[in-house]
Simulated scan of single mutants.
Amino acid sequence: MFSRLLPSWGRNTLTGSVPRPSIYLRRVILNTEKRCFSRNSLLHEKHHASAAPFNTPQSQQRNTSTMYYTISMILGTVALAYGSVPLYKMICQQTGWGGQPILTHRVGDGDTASRVTPVTDSRRLRITFNGSVSDVLPWKFTPQQREVRVLPGETALAFYTAINKGPQDIIGVATYSVTPGQVAPYFSKIQCFCFEEQKLNAGETVDMPVFFYIDPDFATDPNMKGIDTITLSYTFFKAKYDDNGVLKPIPA
């Protein structure tokens, strides 16, 4: 009789029975279990999805393409190093860029005689000279004269001096440029040491001549007005032969 007046938890305590969860509580527990299961499943799927691309045919194809691209870049760099001087000379001869006379101004001996007629009614041009060497070449390379003054069509002779200060015999190759750049097609060299291998023994000193003229058409070109000073610059690079006997410059 007394137990009927107690609340349900009191009756369960007296009777010794374990209370059963209510229907609402059972539903909450069930929904929580479902959410946990769903979350674990999603995490598992994401893990497999993130790991899958590493083994797909598309990823293998991309890796192969990257490898081929890298090999092509390496081979191209090596080829450029071997052919840099011949390629530079060919481009300059075709375009006049870098001070190299274009092919139309590379005339034969008979034609050269007709081109080297001074234009006496033109202004004289001031030709200055520069010389430099690469960092790995233990040479001293300087012009013997600071400047010369010539008329268009008049020949001039200049000299550079090279000294090998290293303990070994060294082969050098020189490139050159003319500034301003638009004068390059008119700067014609009859004799020059550029693009030719020059071997200096240890401690040796040599004089290198440059025989040149400014084409007489310079005087009639309206684009050349106002240009009174032209600079001829040479740079020597260290060179050596590879196993195949090909001359290879070392620009660095």
Rank of each mutant, 00 (worst) to 15 (best):
F2N: 15
S3W: 06
R4N: 11
P7C: 05
S8G: 08
R11I: 00
G16V: 08
G16T: 12
S17V: 08
P19I: 07
P21F: 10
P21N: 14
L25D: 09
R26D: 13
R26Y: 01
R26N: 13
T32L: 15
R35H: 06
C36T: 06
C36F: 14
F37G: 14
N40Q: 09
S41N: 08
S41W: 03
L42N: 05
E45Y: 10
H47R: 13
S50D: 10
A51L: 12
P57C: 00
P57G: 03
Q58H: 13
Q60Y: 09
R62N: 11
T64C: 04
T64D: 12
Y69S: 11
T70H: 13
T70G: 00
A79C: 08
L80F: 14
L80W: 15
Y82H: 14
G83T: 10
S84Q: 08
S84Y: 07
V85E: 13
L87C: 08
M90W: 15
T95W: 02
T95M: 10
G96F: 01
W97S: 09
Q100P: 00
P101G: 02
P101V: 04
P101T: 11
P101D: 01
H105L: 02
V107G: 00
V107E: 04
G110I: 15
D111R: 13
D111M: 14
D111L: 14
T112Q: 13
V116Y: 01
T120P: 00
L125D: 00
T128N: 11
F129Y: 15
N130W: 09
G131M: 06
V133H: 10
V133G: 05
D135A: 11
L137N: 08
F141R: 09
T142K: 06
Q144S: 02
Q145M: 08
R149Q: 11
G153L: 06
T155C: 07
A156K: 09
L157Q: 11
T161W: 10
A162W: 01
G166Y: 01
I171H: 07
G181W: 12
Q182D: 11
V183S: 13
A184Q: 03
A184T: 09
Y186P: 00
Y186H: 07
I190G: 11
C192F: 11
E196P: 01
E197M: 01
L200P: 01
T205P: 04
V206L: 07
D207I: 02
F211N: 07
Y213H: 10
Y213N: 04
I214C: 03
I214G: 03
D215V: 01
D217W: 10
T220D: 14
P222L: 03
K225A: 15
I227A: 05
T229V: 12
T229F: 01
Y234N: 04
T235D: 01
K238W: 06
K238F: 07
Y241K: 11
D243R: 14
N244C: 05
L247A: 09
P251F: 03
A252Q: 12
